[in-house]
Design a protein around this nucleic acid. Structure first.
Lengths: 282, 282
DNA sequence: CTTTATGTGCAAATTAATTACAATCAGGTT
DNA sequence: AACCTGATTGTAATTAATTTGCACATAAAG
């Protein structure tokens, strides 16, 4: 039994459970944070069942015993602290907002981490290393991501550019050659303008790495799609975690490229760091 | 005792510990993942001490007992799976890099979350709501953060702008009035140019919210400093998590402002969403 | 209305964690 | 160098918690 799947397992097994075990399951799902601090007697009392029933419940969801169950639940809670309560409401205090924003961002990151296709990442790193020019395209919230990525790769001695203007994208795309790489960012995966740019890039023989939801038009159009699926809450008060996931993936790619480039690049980075210090006080 | 600080507490207390407690501490720090599955007898045996010593150790680090200790450790591990092994090396595989980047980013976020000054955040939200104009300043990696923030707040019907050019910053700053707000981003907290801009903004009577390390010149100069302390690894292959922390804080501020503005803003956001869809396929 | 299978709780037994106390060790003093 | 004192550690007893075995209850089927 792995931590990430406990609450899921409970929900799955729930219909197949006996009446009193179900009482336990429902109680655990409703107040998981309290359960991890409870003894078996407390939980039995609160769920209105006997202690052995609690144990049978633990076994039913794939744990060795009650302690094992608590431990796994605790881990799952820590990993997804916001389980079942991410949505931000009008009445949340700023403190609640803060933890929800951070927790859901963390949730998103862990989720993306566990679903990344490493093989694709590897392809992407190789393509980036081999490229003469690397360009970053994005609109809206993804424009900032593209500029960040440009800054990140620019430090790696690559010829980089970032465009969030469709005209500039098209003009620049036209001048790309085979071997060059474009990284396209799209949270929706269905922005028309970015699809146009992608087509143009491909018709010039350059590769397109796309960070977009799987099976989206952008992912389908890309040469090397890197799928990033984030439950985009349709809520109004959404923390827009997907752009942060994109940034993290950019970090991975940048570090991958830096490794491949080897020691002379590292010397260059040290130099950069040193020069930056002259722009700072003290 | 909060989960996020257990290993820290162990490290802190370590020099003040007795010899045999230290044995336990070192063992726990070296193989935390195994400890959470151990019984007290196992841990005592492996650390070459007696069982009561283990308990004394647990108490010394602020836990109620051994079970409490294991529970908290399990939570910390789940939340920061990468404890003690974040540094990325030349020889790491891409898979290792990936988990290290994500895990250290998660670490950073949780750490920042636990050290945010909510009172300052509240002040910042109030200042932003009251402002006629809001501008975002940043250089280098923080430039992308500033543009992202501009995009985020622009949607909230505020008059916003973002500048990463010191001349533009200065010109714009000169035209600000009391009640207006500038949000300054600085990862180092010691960039000369941003300090110049901050001074200019203040001399025009506008407020400066700064996201920067505590006690840094930028934080000191700000009207409302929001301290963000990230262990900036001096490593070459650094994931630069601080910019992601800045983004998360921006999310909190943006949601705070959205809440204050109330329902007519929500209608506006819905409208925006609907219009965006016309730029998308399918 | 009985029978049987299944589910549930009580109480005993087992296992683990904690406390009390005694032995030991280190450092300082005569 | 021997002794004392206080802190530190381990042994053994205690207490608390979990788990198991078994008997009772309950519901469905004959």
């Amino acid at each position: 039994m792995k931590p990430a799947e406990l609450t899921l397992a409970i929900s799955t097994e729930l219909p197949a459970m006996r009446r009193s075990e179900r009482k336990v399951a429902e109680f655990v799902l409703s107040r998981p944070a309290e359960v991890i601090r409870m003894r078996i007697v407390d939980l039995a009392e609160q769920a209105q069942v006997s202690e052995p029933t609690v144990i049978r419940f633990c076994r039913a969801v794939g744990c060795k015993g009650f302690l094992d169950f608590k431990l796994i639940l605790a881990q799952q809670l820590a990993a997804s602290p916001s389980y079942g309560q991410i949505a931000i409401t009008d009445t949340d205090s700023l403190a609640e907002c803060t933890s929800k924003v951070f927790d859901s961002t963390v949730d998103t990151l862990l989720n993306v981490r566990d679903h990344l296709d490493l093989h694709r990442l590897d392809e992407a790193v190789k393509a980036l290393c081999a490229a003469n020019r690397v360009e970053f395209y994005g609109f809206g919230a993804s424009a900032a991501v593209a500029f960040d990525a440009q800054h990140r790769f620019f430090r790696l001695q690559l010829a980089t550019a970032a465009y969030s203007d469709p005209h500039l994208q098209n003009m620049s795309a036209t001048s790309l050659s085979p071997g060059d790489v474009v990284v396209a960012f799209s949270q929706s995966g269905r922005t028309k303008a970015i699809l146009d740019s992608i087509d143009l890039v491909k018709s010039n023989g350059a590769a397109v790495i796309a960070l977009a939801p799987s099976k989206s038009p952008v992912a389908t159009a890309a040469t090397i799609p890197i799928n990033i699926d984030v439950e985009e809450d349709s809520q109004i008060y959404t923390p827009l975690s997907s752009r942060i996931a994109h940034l993290a993936v950019i970090d991975v790619l940048a570090i991958g490229v830096a490794q491949q480039k080897g020691p002379e690049l590292q010397e260059h980075l040290r130099q950069l760091q040193a020069n930056l210090n002259s722009l700072r006080v003290k």
